[in-house]
Write a protein that binds this DNA or RNA. Structure first.
Lengths: 210, 210
DNA sequence: ACCTGAACACCGTTCAAGT
DNA sequence: ACCTGAACACCGTTCAAGT
């Protein structure tokens, strides 16, 4: 994101650049940065536009309203999350317990690394918009179900209800990530991985055969 | 809460009632009701005051700012939650697995019954206020730790790390409640209890002896 | 198509003053 | 002590117009 502006300073008023190139993506990035330093509640569409040297009115060409911008931030975030999980899974080979642990590691790591994004992704504002199908988030859940189903097919996991097991795991991952991101519990960075391992391993104990 | 006002209508302007009795509690109730029908982000201090027929400026006598009001709503909510959990535990007798299941049931039931309160309680706005010690929330966590420690002392649970086990359980309860409240998953009311039982039971499997 | 000045109704917060 | 009118800077959103 080139040319950040100190708030308030109009900066490079108009030149000839009436077209921003990719205002949509720029607004999303600007919003994420803003939310990272303040929080979602006090995030402002006007300020996000100001930071990239654009009139706030321009944003309405790409987003129906403030909520739509936030929803776009959330979708974008889920895309990043899923990418991170897939990257992790790709490096793991077979073995359901290890893969599910890796899934959870990638999930929590993302939340801790990008708390601003994560908060928006899981906040009501981005969720209860009836206007939005939330399929990007669902893709992540489907991925988890797929991993569990594969584990069962390979005979590594008990024949439990896939959806139920996925919800149990997702609840634990999300709950843990949320507690950390909201600073209800504090975990040292270098201990995070082993910590997640132990917590998630507990949730897996009921699933794994032998 | 007597005498709700249709928004916008000033209603019973001044009479002789310059003193509201308990403006603090009335504002908290009004805020909860408002958040229940809209959401935290669009909740407005001015509207909350309007609803109880009071000038918004009056609220500043009891709350430093909007955030402090929200924090008070959160604290109030945690007090309710802990009360509900204690009530449930009181009806249960000994037996750690059953008691922990009951704990989780009461927790999730509260979140589902009072989604507005729960959202505020677990939202960043009420959490990252450096001004607030959040000890009310911590009391709930301490209660869970106590239950686990008792179970270990009675020889019903493995000798696991109490804090770690508490975080694992809290993560799952909170994660599940959050997914339901945020409508990421939908659970029929009459199936909620058995649903929570199965999900939480999975998390307990690693803890319970025998 | 994409961008913007001016304007509207609304907010949180503060001051100075009422009882 | 508790409450309020007037005012400030700010917001989201819309209109009508620029290139």
């Amino acid at each position: 994101m080139p040319g950040l502006a100190r708030s308030r300073t109009p900066q490079r008023k108009p030149r000839g650049d009436y077209h921003h190139g990719n205002l949509r993506a720029a607004m999303i990035d600007s919003a994420v940065m803003l939310i990272a330093t303040s929080d979602e509640g006090s995030f402002t569409l006007r300020e996000a536009a100001r930071r990239i040297g654009v009139d706030h009115r321009a944003a309405y060409r790409h987003f129906a309203d403030r909520g739509a911008l936030l929803a776009a931030v959330a979708d974008d975030g889920f895309a990043h999350l899923i990418e991170a999980i897939k990257l992790q899974l790709g490096s793991l080979g077979a073995g359901a317990p290890r893969r599910l642990l890796g899934f959870a590691q990638a999930y929590v790591r993302f939340a801790v690394a990008e708390p601003a994004r994560y908060r928006v992704m899981t906040s009501p504002r981005a969720n209860n918009g009836r206007s939005r199908p939330a399929d990007v988030a669902d893709a992540g859940f489907a991925l988890l179900q797929h991993e569990i189903a594969s584990g069962i097919a390979r005979g590594e996991l008990h024949e439990i209800d896939v959806t139920e097991a996925a919800i149990a795991l997702w609840s634990t991952m999300h709950g843990l990530a949320d507690l950390i991101v909201m600073r209800r519990i504090v975990v040292r960075r270098d201990l995070l991985a082993s910590y997640v391992d132990r917590i998630i391993a507990r949730s897996l104990e009921g699933l794994v055969k032998g």
